[in-house]
Design a binder for these strands. Structure first.
Length: 559
RNA sequence: UGGGGCGUAGUAUAAUGGUAGUACAUCUGGUUUUGGUCCAGACAGUUGGGGUUCGACUCCCUACGCCCCAGCCA
């Protein structure tokens, strides 16, 4: 048997290894995470954050947090704050390196002047429409702007006037003079600056011209001495332009590397569409627990560790792919299985009266806090004559293989006694609303001296001691595997993506829950909703259910 | 049919010329006071066609498929 230690590294790490070998960057690794503050961060950003900060960590390097705030019409401070909070929550540290593209506006302007002076940029009076039509198309080359050969002095004068606010939005732009017949459309005299009389969340009304992404981004990287500028695949076509700008100015020249963004099935990842869900109230806000946002996952009960593990697990390549959202859920289960305290909670209560148990008597049952981690110790749960069990742990006419409670059947109450169902009480509609059971006093703690076996173990809560709560059961937000494909993603919204249970009974230790995710035994993982819970109303969100092979069996056998 | 990328089990991801491996999913079985966890096993793959080579996922040619690009968005 050969023990394999497959320390396989992704293609970006391979590039870094090669760079370190050749001494390309003097063995320096410096990355950056450059979000635009125009929305909340989602799980796709988490992949990028883990990649950029992770690769810096692994290589003893640094990673900057930089806001790419070059478009005041879309950006807001609320987003800046949420992004800082989310990256922090994930556990990454940019130390004193929090930057903004807007910090560089002066330098960017000077660099542009430099390009103008070397005859590599010009002020163009064409309208947006005209620029589009003269750009040509995928097959045909573009045609040169009539303003392309303005004198340098005139360009300088005009560009200064653009900055001074002498023109209306759209009246003029600054363009790079490259090649209108270039096979790469991005190289056909791209716009560097546009006029935007808009107030910026950081620079206010100081500027009315704003740099375009391609012009700004490489210079931001350059000024920060970034070595590896990691971005997503759609920027591959922009790399020649990224390189062109830096070459013209002869400044520090980072290497742009592109990787495939994260896609999840049954999920949308576009910020624009997520914003639509929020704006049109299809969800409860950016941090709705059904949202794939970092803040939503947090509110749902996800741990940062599980997200980090997930990001590591899915890897980094250049292939477009769609990851099964089940893997995200599994990453959570794996983390929480190790760490979540176990508690008993009944989601859909069915009353049980133990007929041979004394009235007004309570005894404390010892329960293990986490079988995966004995160091977390034990706790005591009150037991008494009247209990609640889960409705679906009882069946009047149980099928084969059902080893829970039924008429005449015996089951074990977790950490308590064996009970046998002796009678059922029904309402007018014939539904079972209460059970009468007997208990075997010899089975305290859950095992019998005579060694007889019971197949089923079910959870319970003492009726008089129970804590009342609401629980929200979440399901996927979209019914379609790829909601993005097709006309309108809104039509694929799952109408049952959130189920509210208003009569949940919890063990007393949950009266004042900690801000952690618990395992409700045999049910799943739940966290208190800090936002919606109030002093007299406790609300828990279900992060994810436990794997349930019984439910799977039922489903496969057609209920 | 311009340019740029990508094709390995169902889904992802390794293997840089030398036994196609891993995870998740699926299916079997075992353990279990959570139908959880854990353990064991099974199923299943190099887009097609040529070529180079003792040997090809890997190199070459060719065909096919998929993704991205015609914002004064990022």
């Amino acid at each position: 048997m050969i023990e394999k230690t497959t320390d396989s590294v992704n293609f970006i790490q391979k590039i870094i290894d090669e760079d370190n070998e050749s001494g390309k960057w003097d063995n320096r690794v410096h990355t950056r995470f450059p979000p635009e503050p125009n929305g909340y961060l989602h799980i796709g950003h988490a992949k990028s954050i883990c990649l950029n900060f992770g690769i810096a960590d692994k290589n003893d390097g640094k990673c900057n947090l930089r806001f790419d705030d070059t478009n005041p019409t879309r950006e807001e401070n609320e987003y800046v704050e949420s992004i800082i909070e989310d990256v922090n929550w994930l556990g990454f540290d940019w130390e004193d390196r929090l930057f903004y593209a807007s910090d560089y506006f002066d330098q960017l302007f000077e660099f542009a002047m430099q390009l103008i002076k070397s005859g590599k940029a010009y002020v163009c009076d064409l309208t947006g429409e005209e620029i589009r039509t003269t750009r040509g198309n995928l097959k045909a080359p573009g045609t040169e702007s009539p303003f392309r050969n303005r004198f340098i002095e005139e360009n300088i004068e005009l560009f200064n006037q653009m900055k001074s606010g002498n023109f209306e939005n759209g009246e003029k732009v600054l363009r790079a003079k490259i090649d209108m017949a270039h096979p790469n459309l991005n190289m056909r005299d791209p716009v560097m600056y546009r006029i935007l009389h808009a107030s910026h969340h950081r620079t206010g009304d100081e500027w009315c011209i704003y740099p375009m992404y391609d012009w700004a981004h490489g210079l931001e990287d350059s000024l920060e001495k970034i070595t590896h500028s990691i971005c997503t695949l759609e920027f591959e076509d922009h790399r020649p332009l990224y390189d062109w700008y830096l070459d013209q100015l002869d400044v520090f020249h980072p290497q742009q590397i592109e990787f495939a963004r994260l896609n999840l099935n049954f999920t949308i990842m576009s910020k624009r569409k997520l914003k639509k869900l929020v704006d049109e109230n299809h969800v409860d806000g950016w941090d709705d627990p059904r949202m794939p946002t970092i803040s939503g996952l947090k509110r749902r009960g996800y741990s940062p560790e599980s997200i980090l593990n997930f990001a590591e697990d899915v890897g980094v390549t250049k292939r477009d792919s769609i990851i099964d959202v089940v893997r995200l859920e599994n990453a959570l289960r794996e983390d929480l299985n190790k760490r979540a305290p176990r508690v008993l909670g009944v989601l859909n209560p069915l009353k049980v009266v133990i007929t041979n148990y004394p009235e007004n008597h309570t005894e404390m049952m010892e329960a293990v806090n986490n079988p995966e981690d004995p160091s977390t110790g034990k706790r005591e749960i009150p037991f008494s004559k009247e209990l609640y069990i889960e409705q679906n742990d009882f069946m009047e006419d149980p099928p084969r293989k059902f080893f829970r409670l039924g008429p005449g059947r015996e089951v074990r109450l977790r950490y308590a006694y064996y009970i046998t169902c002796t009678d059922t009480i029904k309402n007018d509609k014939g539904e079972v609303v209460e059970l009468r059971c007997t208990y075997d006093p010899e089975t305290r703690g859950g095992s019998s001296p005579d060694g007889r076996k019971v197949k089923g173990t079910i959870h319970w809560v003492s009726a008089n001691h129970a804590v009342d709560a609401h629980v929200r059961l979440y399901d996927r937000l979209f019914l379609k595997e790829n909601p993005d494909d097709g006309d309108n993603f809104l039509q694929y919204i799952n109408p049952n993506s959130c189920t509210l249970l208003e009569n949940v009974k919890l063990e007393p230790s949950l009266a004042i829950p900690e801000n952690i995710t618990y395992q409700f035994e045999r049910n799943g993982y739940f966290v208190k909703d800090e936002k919606d819970s109030s002093e007299n109303q406790l609300i828990f969100n279900r992060a994810v259910s436990l794997r349930d092979s019984w439910a799977k069996f039922l489903k496969q056998s057609g209920h």
